[in-house]
Nucleic acid binder design. Structure first.
Lengths: 226, 226
DNA sequence: ACAGAAGTCGAGGTAGCCCTCAAGTTCGTT
DNA sequence: AACGAACTTGAGGGCTACCTCGACTTCTGT
């Protein structure tokens, strides 16, 4: 017990120089491979591309998730910042549209981030940490735009999950051959979210737990190895 | 050469009774497993569920695609019929909405059909055969609705691919936990397609070849074994 | 310059899936 | 009843991926 306390208090002495070099190479390789293949890309491919043996990868990142987190903290922070930036904007509709566009831009051409954003790897600690905060900000963006009559009143923040999922597959399909196609889909979605002339929607919105469960289910029986 | 002509002219003598039973069991098992796991489900799992050895599966369906086709001809025909039915309807918008809803219903709760519809398995002979026809009918449905001023003039039939892709991931995510959620997304999309709400879209539509290539790319490096 | 801590290597065990094929079984017919 | 064709079986070889661990190499402080 006390020894666990010690290890969890992360002394974190600096890495040896060669080790640091290898670690950096691994992160670089993982970034490019996760982006093109998704989070379930073979780790051996990453090690190979980094010019390092598989054992070294495992020493630096004992689980796949450790590697994923090392790579995506940055993008997650950008996500949060976009949300904050949106809330700082004057026009509520502009803010809403800006936020969705930023989010989709982050997702575009990065299958790894898509997997993360749609939570195909729900056990990412970095997600767990950020999720609540992102959710709160998203809700405020949506509700503000609704208060001002810009976004239709019958949608909820949970409906943004639909956009994320949709965008995931669309950008997967088109990123090679028609890399801007997702913007067209986003344009359609934005029109759909506009308050003006909205028709009643057929189903009640998802409940927050349902969204969470749905996201988790995308990862079930998939590679959640770590 | 002449022997090939013979084999290709499918004498098709009836199967032995036990063989037929096994074949049926395989089709049943495949139907349920492809529906829940997608077209890349392990064939050994299908054989197991059918209560049959793996060799028997291969004797009946030498390639995965043979099995896929045996299962999905029916659904593909339904797809076509829905399109024809739509073209028979009086109201062009109703027809458009009807067609999209039928298509999404076919996709819902069937990962296998999703894979097929988004062409994650592009080499399906049944797809190749049907593709052109479906495309033609879809185009007529869209264009008629546009002529009557119901659907915005700046979309094309290629944009339906966006709906298919989007729906694919959404129904994958929600089919367990919130099985009607896709209807909400479809509702949003229908509003987006309405002429009345249209704001100019940011990108030109995809060209038909681009759609094809994008669909094919979903299957690349995936299990196109057969 | 050297000791030893820190890091690296990669063969090898495990596992899931693909597909084949030779030996054995079942069916339908005569 | 018995024969041959049709069918079934499942072990086995090949592949790819995961992850571990003991032998080896490299760095760094003294």
């Amino acid at each position: 017990m006390s020894s666990e306390e010690l290890t969890s208090t992360k002394a974190a002495r600096p890495l040896r120089r060669d080790a640091q070099r290898n670690r950096d190479a691994l992160v670089d390789a993982a970034r490019s491979i996760f982006a093109s293949e998704g989070l379930d890309a073979p780790l051996e491919q990453i090690a190979r591309q980094a010019g390092v043996a598989i054992g070294t990868l495992y020493r630096n990142f004992p689980t796949r998730m450790d590697l994923v987190e090392a790579i995506f903290v940055g993008k997650l922070r950008t996500w949060l910042e976009s949300a904050e930036q949106a809330l700082d904007m004057d026009d509520a509709w502009e803010a809403f549209a800006f936020y969705l566009e930023k989010l989709c831009e982050l997702q575009a051409h990065d299958r790894g981030f898509n997997d993360l954003a749609s939570m195909r790897f729900p056990h990412a600690a970095c997600m767990e940490r950020t999720q609540g905060h992102i959710n709160e900000l998203s809700r405020r963006i949506v509700e503000r735009a609704q208060r001002e009559g810009a976004v239709r009143p019958d949608v909820t923040v949970e409906d943004l999950a639909l956009v994320i999922w949709a965008h995931t597959r669309i950008s997967e399909a088109t990123s090679e051959v028609c890399p801007a196609a997702w913007r067209r889909h986003l344009g359609l979605m934005l029109d759909a979210f506009r308050a003006a002339r909205a028709r009643p929607l057929p189903e009640p919105p998802m409940r927050p737990e349902e969204v969470y469960q749905a996201m988790v289910s995308l990862g079930d029986s998939s590679t959640c190895t770590g």
